[in-house]
Deep mutational scan, measured.
Amino acid sequence: MAAAAAAGAGPEMVRGQVFDVGPRYTNLSYIGEGAYGMVCSAYDNVNKVRVAIKKISPFEHQTYCQRTLREIKILLRFRHENIIGINDIIRAPTIEQMKDVYIVQDLMETDLYKLLKTQHLSNDHICYFLYQILRGLKYIHSANVLHRDLKPSNLLLNTTCDLKICDFGLARVADPDHDHTGFLTEYVATRWYRAPEIMLNSKGYTKSIDIWSVGCILAEMLSNRPIFPGKHYLDQLNHILGILGSPSQEDLNCIINLKARNYLLSLPHKNKVPWNRLFPNADSKALDLLDKMLTFNPHKRIEVEQALAHPYLEQYYDPSDEPIAEAPFKFDMELDDLPKEKLKELIFEETARFQPGYRS
């Protein structure tokens, strides 16, 4: 834990890192770190609560700039109880001085990944967590956004079992017609939660990839272990087919990539493993919904509104309290091709509203 900075004593240090967030945020305490930044909790002297502050230093890398800009653009436009918001952003007053960006968010005690390492969940908890994931996802999908990296560590939890989806750095506007060349190379989302079509096709992607990830998360809540822990690309596919069985001819016809289709045709026939054999203690309604989410063919996979209306979630289902976005989200430009200098300018502009004396 960093010592509390005395008023006016300059930035606090946390594990050798400068955290320049005073005077409003003090009493910093280390939480963890990701690929390009550290997260601390801090005391907000204005709202009198502890908050989470993520320090991001992305400006050396085009990919990190892209992810940072995506996350900020999306989260500043989203407003939903099951999606983490941005409360404040701290950065230098000029673009030349801006080396880091500090993002202030609600402090959540833990995440689903940490929880599943230590606790076996009751059916009631599984049901409530799944409902909140789908409630947040309904809003995301209504904005025409794909999260693309749903996994237990991106689901934040607090002691009252509130759940918030975080990390929109890989999110995209849904565009089933656009052929994202190089899709697989830039697709760094965790393999275990990846839909089979991501490994088999490169053309376009749809909201059904997020539903697949939610199915993987439900299976993990039922058993405290990942359902498809593939060691590499082909191993991942083999794990999936080992449980779902061989795809039907109709399902194979959806695979545009001939090499991928021929690979699947070359494999020995596998039978589907019954879900109640894998999860003998699970609620039968939970397994019915799991089956509809972990469907090989993305066109037959359940959609988020149908999933919310499934009998497993009937005690929570309330369409009048499951809000959607006001308007579909649009990125003005494809960020993939922009140089990091341009992305830095866009991050600077996007964060201006939090600067003292800002006038829109």
Rank of each mutant, 00 (worst) to 15 (best):
A4N: 01
A7N: 02
G8W: 06
G8F: 08
G10W: 15
G10C: 13
P11G: 11
E12K: 14
V14S: 04
V14N: 03
R15E: 05
V18I: 13
V21E: 15
G22S: 01
P23H: 14
R24C: 12
R24E: 08
T26S: 15
G32W: 01
A35E: 10
A35N: 11
A35P: 10
V39L: 13
S41I: 02
A42F: 00
A42H: 05
Y43W: 06
Y43S: 07
N45F: 04
V46H: 02
K48A: 10
K54C: 01
P58D: 01
F59D: 01
T63F: 11
T63G: 05
C65L: 10
C65S: 15
Q66E: 11
R67V: 05
I83L: 10
I90Y: 01
P93V: 02
M98A: 06
I103Q: 09
L107A: 08
D111Q: 04
D111S: 02
L112F: 07
K114T: 12
L115M: 10
T118C: 08
H120D: 05
C127F: 14
L130G: 08
L134P: 09
G136V: 14
S142I: 03
N144C: 09
N144F: 07
V145S: 03
L146T: 04
D149S: 00
D149G: 09
S153D: 03
L157G: 12
N158G: 12
N158K: 15
L163P: 11
I165C: 05
C166D: 03
D167G: 06
G169Y: 01
G182I: 13
F183R: 06
A189L: 12
T190S: 15
Y193C: 08
M199G: 08
G204Y: 09
I209M: 09
A219M: 13
L222C: 08
N224Y: 15
P226S: 12
F228T: 00
G230C: 15
K231P: 01
K231W: 00
Y233V: 06
D235N: 14
I240L: 09
G245Y: 03
S246C: 14
P247G: 00
P247S: 07
L252P: 13
N253P: 06
C254R: 09
I255C: 13
K259F: 07
A260R: 02
L267T: 02
K270F: 09
K270V: 03
N271K: 12
K272R: 12
F279E: 05
L287W: 06
L294K: 04
T295R: 08
F296W: 03
K300D: 09
R301M: 03
I302M: 01
Q306E: 05
A309M: 03
L313H: 05
L313V: 01
A327W: 07
F329G: 01
M333N: 11
M333R: 07
L335T: 10
K340L: 07
L343I: 08
L343S: 12
E345L: 05
F348L: 15
F348E: 13
E349W: 00
G357D: 15
R359Q: 08
S360Q: 14
